[in-house]
């Protein structure tokens, strides 16, 4: 799904890297625990989170994630926006909750990353 489509569906505000709205994401991972993002994300996914600190951006960067969506109207600070800009990561903020954000994207065809091994 194109990042621009995510923005439309969530009525999200784009915070940086608007020039990359044409890029695609193939799955999504919704989580406030960066440890799990580092352990389980496998493909070019969008990160949906309510956690706001620079480690969110660094985690996304390590995982080659191209888009971060902050839920519940959370807003990153200037330092985080700079870090995302330097690395071309699109950041957006939506007033929707994590649950509703996941539901909207899933019902529009964006699947989650693979299940965690049992």
């Amino acid at each position: 799904m194109k990042i621009s489509r995510l923005q439309e569906l969530l009525d999200a505000k784009v915070l940086c890297c608007e020039e990359n709205l044409g890029k695609h994401v193939y799955s999504a991972f919704g989580c406030d625990l960066m440890s799990d993002v580092l352990a389980y994300v496998t493909d070019q996914a969008v990160l949906l989170t309510g956690l706001v600190n620079p480690q969110v951006i660094r985690t996304a960067l390590m995982m080659d994630m191209v888009c971060i969506i902050f839920v519940r109207s959370k807003a990153p600070n200037e330092e985080m926006i700079e870090l995302a800009k330097e690395n071309g990561i699109v950041m957006m903020s939506t007033n929707k909750t994590l649950y509703n954000t996941c539901g909207i994207l899933y019902s529009n065809g964006l699947i989650g990353t693979a299940e965690v091994p049992k």
């Binding site: 406030d32 625990l33 440890s35 352990a39 956690l51 600190n53 480690q55």
Partner: peptide
């Protein structure tokens, strides 16, 4: 509370 410390670090480094 900062999103880390879940006990996944060392196993993930090995993986």
């Amino acid at each position: 509370s900062l999103g880390f410390g879940a006990g996944m670090g060392l196993p993930n480094m090995k993986k």
